[in-house]
Write a protein that binds this DNA or RNA. Structure first.
Lengths: 244, 244
DNA sequence: GCAGCATCTTTACACTGTCAAAATTGAGGC
DNA sequence: GCCTCAATTTTGACAGTGTAAAGATGCTGC
């Protein structure tokens, strides 16, 4: 009994072994005051995902465990298993939510751009900005080896993300509709280059490696300025091998 | 995290509780046949690092635990603690070894290049090739959040790696000696671009994301070809803003 | 009303990292 | 030679993790 009761809530302070009392009652009050939560939660799946997002933002990827999420949601440690199968399942569903947020943020930034140049820079800047605002989520989405991309929700959300990026690159090169069909090597290289550049810069930035470079630049130079410098010298030039 | 069957050598197949026998004897025979290893190993630190490298190659990052390394080396589960402090210490020292291998591989590739163009492509190709040959080690070096970069050995090895990359970029732009001094924004952007491109492509490749792109290219197109395509359209053009 | 089933809890187990104490051994001081 | 001492290694324990199985509970269809 002395094993795993570290973070338990007060738990009614009763040692009565619940002969007839319902152990699931009057305990889930962390959310909005509904203190008479039924034994059957009703929407535990969604509640668990929201709890997981809170834990991720608060404690980072290392603190995102099944039991921590269950504690945050106020249910027993085995409750998540029923809804997600295992840890990979929970993480994958949460990552799918992250991808949708990510896509929405980039689409919004792309739509509200004023000048043409700003339009070109809007997506990449939104990409890095999202990662900086939600480092745990970005790490989960892109750096975690505990995701199952065969899950439909995650697969679709990630695919949408990739398609948006590929389309943006295609539009920049004057080509529309980058469906699931064949690409020229040049076009594929342009997509891979854009994605690699953004993803690499982002992960290096989150890992603190970019600081070494920023320290050699004038005082106060921010990562965003460096990113703009990286992009401008790339975007300002036409493709080397026109795609005709 | 059920492993249960993995690891767990026969362990001498004896249940004699070693009433007077020395439990540390005649057990470390995995290496070279020296079956009468003394209680004091003599070079346990090195043996543990080699064992850790074997475990990493065999079971990946997820299987690289303190206890697994101790089992692989044939010592008790707490032996590594004395030499490395904690898991972070062991992983950091192993990552330092990885960085040195990584640096050596790139330097060798850069030195044995024949043509000038091949010289430019040699380093990036060696970069990706190393990561493909040692995915676990690359993940440990660049993707693990459990490293302590304040450790001198790791700090120095990683710094050497970065300096080599920065120097290669500097040489490509006609500038030598990229010491720890100030950089122009353009030069810093070039370094960050090269590093981000390589690191991003590598991690995307290791995570299987590049496959989605390769599938849209002619049958049999390999990642190396795509990488060359990415680099050629970048390298074949002079810098947009000459560094004069 | 009640049987079936989905949901949630309890219990148990194997594994992990880390700490403290005990055991073993090599080396130096007398 | 013996004896202490410090370094090294083992043993044991503890808190935490994921996961599986069994028990408790309440909704739902009949």
């Amino acid at each position: 009994m002395r094993k795993t009761d570290r973070g338990r809530r007060p738990r009614a302070a009763a040692k009565a072994p619940s002969l007839s009392g319902r152990p699931g009652r009057a305990r889930r009050d962390a959310g909005g005051g509904k203190t008479d939560a039924p034994y059957h939660h009703g929407a535990l799946r969604e509640a668990l995902l929201q709890a997981a997002e809170r834990v991720l933002e608060r404690d980072g990827l290392a603190g995102l465990t099944l039991r921590a999420v269950a504690r945050e949601a106020g249910v027993s440690h085995a409750a998540p298993t029923h809804h997600f199968g295992d840890l990979t399942g929970l993480l994958s569903e949460l990552a799918a939510i992250g991808f949708r947020q990510f896509n929405a943020a980039m689409a919004a930034a792309s739509n509200t751009a004023a000048s043409p140049l700003e339009g070109l820079l809007a997506r990449p800047k939104a990409y890095v900005a999202y990662a900086q605002a939600h480092p745990g989520m970005y790490g989960l989405m892109f750096r975690s080896e505990r995701l199952d991309y065969s899950r439909p929700t995650l697969h679709e959300a990630a695919e949408t993300c990739f398609a948006g990026l590929a389309n943006a690159v295609g539009a920049m090169r004057g080509q529309e509709h980058t469906g699931a069909e064949a690409l020229s090597l040049d076009h594929a290289a342009a997509i891979a280059r854009a994605w690699s550049l953004l993803h690499g810069f982002t992960t290096l930035l989150l890992d603190g490696r970019i600081k070494d470079i920023l320290n050699r630049l004038p005082e106060g130079t921010t990562a965003e300025v460096l990113l703009e410098g990286m992009l401008k010298t790339t975007l300002a030039r036409p493709p080397a091998y026109p795609s005709g």
